[in-house]
């Protein structure tokens, strides 16, 4: 009884996948709990079968056909087919599709900081360092690139990660359900300053955008 709240409390954290605050992270968390349940059952089943192997007065001997065709092929493939199908279905729904109110920002990684650029109210570009401002409850496409080595843009409570590669512009769809501060981290080893390559995503109420000052030097 005590274990349940303890367990749930143990799932919280500023970078926790298990504490989702956006639709992408939430769907992946559901996928995880489903897979965990299945994997737990399968582990128990296989270990039980191994244990039964030691019982001299075990049940009637199943045939080779049962083990190889039944368990090895049919059983395994059924589970895998369902799982891969489910995974693809979720993955397809997380793709950045064009929409009327998609907000678009640029994320530029370099050793070891993140710069974010988005159009300001007056049409000029506004650049912020290590803090990304996005409207809450709005789909946001982050266009991710790097100026030197490979980095990875990751805000675990909002969505999965996407690599920042020199010469490429990858797009990741994120969305925060509610206004708040969400932590992000780089998730691709990038040398000496890697551990400290953190950033923040501040989701503001869509009807109350903050006044941003440009921190860029261009």
């Amino acid at each position: 009884m005590l274990a349940v709240p303890l367990l749930l409390a143990g799932c919280e954290g500023p970078l926790s996948i298990l504490d989702p605050q956006g639709p992408a992270a939430a769907q992946i968390a559901v996928l995880w709990w489903a897979m965990l349940t299945g994997a737990g059952l399968l582990t128990v089943m296989v270990m039980a079968l191994v244990w039964l192997g030691f019982r001299r007065d075990g049940p009637r001997q199943p045939s080779e056909r049962f083990w190889i065709h039944g368990m090895g092929l049919a059983f395994t493939m059924t589970i895998l087919a369902a799982l891969v199908g489910g995974g693809l279905w979720v993955g397809e729904r997380l793709q950045p599709r064009p929409g009327p109110q998609v907000h678009r920002v640029e994320a530029i990684a370099s050793q070891w900081q993140w710069r974010f650029r988005q159009p300001g109210p007056d049409g000029g570009w506004i650049e912020t360092t290590d803090r990304l401002h996005i409207p809450a409850a709005t789909p946001v496409d982050v266009v991710i690139t790097s100026q030197d080595v490979i980095h990875s843009f990751w805000v675990p409570r909002l969505a999965g990660k996407m690599d920042a590669l020199p010469g490429r512009h990858n797009v990741l769809r994120i969305k925060a359900d509610a206004p708040g501060l969400y932590h992000g981290t780089s998730a691709e080893f990038s040398g000496r300053g890697y551990a400290g390559m953190r950033f923040e995503v501040l989701a503001y109420p869509p009807d109350d955008p903050p006044t941003l000052t440009d921190e860029g030097d261009e």
Binding site: I17, M35, L83
Partner: peptide, 30 residues
């Protein structure tokens, strides 16, 4: 060999989890 069964089966199952693309997006490089 019992050590093998009690670890490899779980490793195989987490491997299948990692093959599922959206989940991989989250836990890759963690």
């Amino acid at each position: 060999l019992m050590g093998f069964f009690s670890t490899f089966v779980m490793g195989g199952l987490t491997g299948v989890m990692l093959a599922i693309v959206p989940f991989n997006w989250q836990v890759h490089d963690t």
